[in-house]
Design a protein around this nucleic acid. Sequence first.
DNA 1: ATGAAAGCGCTAACAC
DNA 2: GTGTTAGCGCTTTCAT
Lengths: 340, 340
Amino acid sequence: MDSEQERELTLADIARLAGVGLGTASRALRGLPNVSPATRQKVLEVAERHDYVVSPDASQLKKGATGRVAVVVPHLSRWFFGEMVEGIESVLRQAGYDLLLYHVGNLQDRQSFFELLPARRKVDAVIVVGFPVEEAERQRLELMLGAQIVAAGGQHEVYPHVCIDDLKAGSQAMGHLLALGHRRIAMIEAIDPEQPRQPSGRSAAYHMALNDADIESDPALVVTTAWGIEQGSTAMAHLLSLAELPTAVYAHSDEVAFGAMRTIRDAGLRIPEDISIIGIDDHPHAALLHLTTIKQDVRRQGVLTAQMLLGLLRHDEIERSITLGTHLIVRRTTASPRNG
Amino acid sequence: MDSEQERELTLADIARLAGVGLGTASRALRGLPNVSPATRQKVLEVAERHDYVVSPDASQLKKGATGRVAVVVPHLSRWFFGEMVEGIESVLRQAGYDLLLYHVGNLQDRQSFFELLPARRKVDAVIVVGFPVEEAERQRLELMLGAQIVAAGGQHEVYPHVCIDDLKAGSQAMGHLLALGHRRIAMIEAIDPEQPRQPSGRSAAYHMALNDADIESDPALVVTTAWGIEQGSTAMAHLLSLAELPTAVYAHSDEVAFGAMRTIRDAGLRIPEDISIIGIDDHPHAALLHLTTIKQDVRRQGVLTAQMLLGLLRHDEIERSITLGTHLIVRRTTASPRNG
DNA sequence: ATGAAAGCGCTAACAC
DNA sequence: GTGTTAGCGCTTTCAT
C-alpha cells in the first residue's frame, strides 16, 4: 500500500472533479454569492466526498491574515499559567484561531524570543502572559508589523491588558491580618529570579498597609525568594530564626505559603494559634490545606484577554484595560494573635 | 504616523535593494552554495539592516513542510500536562518547530477535534498527550496525510509512543503496602469522566497484587472517582463509612491522595498510624505533604516524545516505543498496620 | 453565474 | 555565479 504517497487534494482537483472552474469552486466552498445553487451543491458534494479542506497556508498567503495567535508564557506547569492558557485557548479556538505556544522559562529563552522573534510573520497577534514587557522588548515587538499585542496577568501600561490589581490584592491580605490584630507581620516576597526584577504591587501593599496602621516596618520581617513551595519553605525557616517571631505571615502567593506552612508545622508551631498565614491566588490546593487567601479568577482573565484581542483584531471599539476584582477567602490559617 | 500601514519587506525588496536577482538573494540568505562571498555579504547586510525575515508561510507553501506540530492535550492546568508540554516544547523549539496547542477538555471538544481536524494541513506531526486514541479517532487522523503521529503519557499500540508502565507503577505501590503488612487495602480508582472509559493498568495492578498475595479482594474497598482533589476527598469519605476500615489506601494519583488525606485527618484519624496512603506521580506537592508515592518523570517523557518525533520526521531508524521506569519514594504516609 | 488570469512571497530548475 | 522562470494552492479581479 502506498497510502504514504497519497497527497492532499487541491482546489484544482475538486474543481476538475466537479466540472467547474477554479474560481467557482473557491466561491462555492466559501459560501460566497454568485454561484448557482446547483453548482454549489455539486462542488460541496465533491469536496465532502473527498474530505477536502483548503490549505490554510495557501489561502492566508493570499489573504494576508494568518489565523494564528502567539501565546508567550514563562511557565506552564504552574497552575496560574495553565489556567490562563486554558481560558485563552477556549475563546481563540471558538473564533477559529490557532494558538502558537512559546515558552520563555528563563532569562535566556526570553532574550532569544525577543531577539529572534520566532513568531514573526506567523501570527496576527501575540498575548504575553504573566510578565511585564520591557522597553527594549517592546521595541523588538514592533518589528511584528500589524500584529496586535495584548497582555494578560501582568501590569502593562503599554499594551491593552487584563489583570488584577496587585496592590489591592495585597491590601486585602494585609487588611485582614491587621483587622485580626496582628502588628508583627512578616512578608514573604516572591520574585521570578529568571526574569528581570519588577516593582511589585504586592510588596508595595505591605509597606503601605503597615504605614497606614502606624506600624514601623521591620526589614528583618521581609524575606525575598523565588516563586515556589520549597522556596517558601526556606524563606519561612529564615523567618523562624528571628529572635522575635512574627505573629502573622503575608505570602505573595499560595504556593509560597504552602511551603511556609510546612516549615511552621515542622518547627512544632501551630497555625493559626502561633502564627497566622495568608496567601494570594486561591490555588486549588489552598482549600485542601485550609489556607486563607485572596482569590483571583485566572481563567476568566484568560477568557477576557482573548476576547479583548478578538475585538482588537476586528477593530471594534473596546475597553483596552480590564482589572478584575479579588476577594478575601477566610479559611483556617488566620486568627487573632494570642497576645493581641 | 502611518507606521500601522508599513508592510513587511519581501524577498523581492531585498533583492532589489541589494541589486541582485531574486534567486541569488534567496540562496544567499539560506546559505546555499553558488553565491560569491561578496554578493552574499551584500545581501545579508541589506537583509540585516531592514530586519528582514522570510515569510515562513510562503516558503513552506513551496517546500511542503509546515514546520509546525500540533500538541493535543485534555488538560492544561493540571501539573502532569503542563510538565509534559514543557518537555515537548523545549525540544521542538530547539529544532525550529512551532507548537500548535489544541485543548480537548471534554468529550465534546474531543469529538469536534477529531471531526473537524483543525490541525489538518497545518502541521507536520501531531502529539497526542495523555489519552489513548480510539479506533474511530485513528481513522479520522488518517486524513492528515503525511503527518507523523506520536503519543505521550498514554498507552498506544497504534502509534509510536513514550509512557510509563502503569501496571508496574501500580504494582510498586501495592508491593510497598503489602510488604508493610497491609492486607485490607482500598483503592481509589481515578478515571476521566470526560473521556471514554479506558482499561487501566493501575487498576489491574491492584487486583493482580492482591491475587498474588492470596488476599481476597473486597469490592467495597474499590471506589471509582474523577481525577481530582475534591473527588479523592469524597471517595475517601465513602471508604471511611465502611463497617471495617481499610488499613491502607492506594490512590491512582497523588492529587486524589491529597484529597483523601484531608478527609482522613478531618475524620480524626492519623496518617499513617491509623491509615496508610500511597499515590502515583510524585506531584510537586507530594513532598510538601510527605506523601509516599511512585515517581514518574513527566518532563522527560515530553522530551523523549518530541525527540522521537523529530527522528520520525527525519526518517531515522529509531525506537518507536519507550517505556520509562518509575520508582517508589517512601515518605511519611505509609507504615505497617497497627495490628498487622 | 462562471472561467481565465494575475499574483500572494517564496523556492527550485533552468539557462546563461 | 547569477538572473529568469515556473510553479506551490489558493483568492480575487476581470471579462464573458
